[in-house]
């Protein structure tokens, strides 16, 4: 599903040049659950952003379902992203002004799903995430765990092929964290590919494979048994 080769990302300021990704090459197969680990600043979030088509690489190749997307323009990236990729963030990134229902509905609006279908699909996914009873609440009225469940619901409502999770349990206590990891595992078992950036060895154990990064390069891969 994902094949990246010699990918480079360099951040430049007037005085400093920081190599975030240094000719990194990774493959992810469809249906895999991959965890990316490494110390702060090793480039894992940059990698996740490029995989999520939120950022451009400077050099290298990025094949998504055998299509070269490394130098797609903004419109093409947005199009590919909204149909294929769901995101879960550490800080949930829910829109405070929208209700739970409206937050989950958002990706469907941007993919042009009709109102009737949207309602049905949002209700289905809220039900599945056991958050239906909170559908009219605003994010600030929910606990951290509930907010992350809404974020996961939003990530999956479009039935994406790939979910990218950036430290999804980073802001949660262990009980809520486990709940979210179980949700992601369930989704993976249903066929969704998941790539997760995490600092937590505990969370990483939910994955099939751990890629360890240092200074913008992969240094080790652990296959989980």
């Amino acid at each position: 599903m994902i094949k990246i080769r010699d990918l480079e990302k360099i951040y430049r300021t007037e005085e400093v040049e920081t190599v975030a990704l240094n000719k990194i090459s990774i493959d992810v197969k469809e249906g895999e659950f991959v965890a990316i680990m490494g110390p702060s600043g090793c480039g894992k979030s940059t990698l996740l952003n490029i995989l999520g088509l939120l950022d451009d690489p400077d050099n290298g190749s990025f094949l998504f379902n055998n299509i070269e997307v490394a130098h797609f323009n903004e419109r093409k990236r947005a199009d590919l992203r909204k149909h294929n990729i769901g995101f879960v963030f550490q800080s949930f990134n829910l829109i405070d002004e929208l209700t739970v229902f409206e937050n989950v509905e958002l990706p469907l609006i941007y993919t042009g799903v009709k109102a009737g279908d949207r309602k049905k699909r949002v209700e289905e996914v809220l039900d599945k995430m056991q958050i239906m009873h909170r559908r009219n609440h605003y994010p600030q009225q929910l606990s951290g765990g509930q907010q992350q469940r809404v974020a996961v619901a939003r990530a999956v409502v479009n039935n994406p092929k790939l979910i990218l999770a950036d430290e999804p349990t980073g802001n949660l206590d262990s009980s809520n964290g486990n709940e979210v990891m179980t949700l992601l595992t369930d989704l993976n078992e249903q066929g969704t590919t998941i790539i997760m950036v995490t600092h937590s060895e505990h969370d990483a154990r939910y994955s099939h494979r751990i890629i360890r990064m240092l200074d913008g390069q992969t240094v080790l891969e652990n296959i989980m048994v």
């Binding site: 419109r75 947005a78 909204k82 995101f87 829109i95 958002l106 941007y110 939003r154």
Partner: peptide, 16 residues
């Protein structure tokens, strides 16, 4: 800014 970022991640176009 945050809201715009989220909406863009969710697929909002520039005109939207």
């Amino acid at each position: 800014t945050k809201e715009i970022g989220i909406r863009k991640v969710m697929g909002a176009t520039v005109s939207q």
